[in-house]
Design a binder for these strands. Structure first.
Lengths: 205, 205
DNA sequence: TGTACATCAGTGAACGCGCGTTCACTGATGTAC
DNA sequence: TGTACATCAGTGAACGCGCGTTCACTGATGTAC
């Protein structure tokens, strides 16, 4: 990290700033990050970032954008077009959600806790919509064989799952409030969605 | 707000600072709050808060503490010792959770989004544990008549519900990410917990 | 292949700002006698 | 009831700090001919 540059030009400052931001956000939270500190970590003067970003907010938005892209990719990969079975694929998506939050906390925080506005940028909105679309598709194929009368809208189901996943991440996978929980985040999410799916009539035993 | 004081002494500066903090947190987020601004809103010099709090963090912790107390009271009241039925009481608790987050956003943010540490203060930890205890008791009485073999631990169930509630609040009841949702937060939480309870075997139809 | 020149991506100094915190102080209040 | 005095809860000035941002600048790179 922050090797002394050989040349006057950095080479890839834009991405270096993104990575410094990830590190800072992970260590100090969404507000502990400053443009000046990111520049410092990239081994560059405080004015340099302005060659690549309009300002602080645009840098965070870029981090969030990259986060949504990666998130979408991981969810797509986990879903794998619903193979081998819709239920197995759905479970994998849930696990992928939690794994993403744990392995990429900086991205997760930029996406969901930084106050970044999805309406601010078309690309951001698009990246976000794609990721959420995977969850909705997973819910849809899961319910394909339920009688229409007892089949709630797929978007609603994906929102339920999203809410529970996000709640587990925020309350139990991070440092603070629920910290002393007797169950791991993974167990909680797995058991929670299990009960939920039984309620939907998708699991019966 | 911030009436000119008549006297040299404020009278109730401590609580006035708490209220200014609530207002600031609500309007600008947990980090948009500053001690200096809170003092200004209370009509007092920037040094005055130090007569009542050691510093910024202690003021936020006090706001969180009051929040947990109020939260606990509201949940207790909603639960009402499980009357008229455990199921009805449980539903009321869920609605009370969401109502609290909406009606007292400043408290909610201080409690769950400010990074305040529960281990920092015994009183805080106690107030928090009491509020969560209500949810666990509600889950317990709800499951009292389930056969032991298919009855998950009450703490686990209350964590599931807590996670889903928190997720709904963060994603759909606040400004940003899920903003454009086709369902209200209330509907989402109601339908989500309904499906979950069916999965538990508490609702059957 | 060489050269002139435009453009790009940095620098470093400077700015104004608001914050958190400390300090010696002073006005107001409460209490002992 | 009056007075002396201790304590409490404010003031206001000052500090050091780091931030975001702008600006004229300069070294490095790319390109037309």
């Amino acid at each position: 990290m922050s090797e002394a540059r050989k040349s006057y030009h950095h080479g890839n400052l834009r991405q270096a700033l993104v990575e410094a931001t990830l590190k800072l956000i992970t260590e100090r939270g969404p507000q502990g990050f400053t443009l000046a500190e990111a520049a410092r970590q990239a081994g560059v003067s405080a004015a340099a970032p302005y060659r690549h970003f309009k300002g602080r907010d645009e840098l965070i938005a870029e981090v969030a954008r990259q986060g949504y892209l990666l998130f979408g990719d991981l969810l797509e990969h986990a879903y794998n077009e619903g193979k081998p079975t819709p239920l197995a694929a759905f479970s994998k998506v849930g696990r992928a959600y939690l794994a993403f939050a744990k392995r990429h906390p900086g991205h997760y925080i930029a996406m969901f806790e930084s106050g970044v506005s999805l309406t601010g940028s078309t690309e951001l909105a698009h990246a976000s919509a794609r990721a959420m679309g995977v969850m909705t598709r997973a819910a849809e194929s899961l319910m394909a064989h339920l009688p229409a009368s007892q089949r709630p809208p797929a978007v609603m189901v994906s929102h339920h799952i999203w809410a529970m996943s996000h709640g587990v991440v925020e309350l139990f996978a991070r440092g603070t409030p629920g910290g002393r929980a007797p169950f791991s985040p993974e167990d909680l999410l797995e058991s929670g969605t299990g009960i939920y799916l039984r309620g939907l009539g998708i699991i019966t035993d």
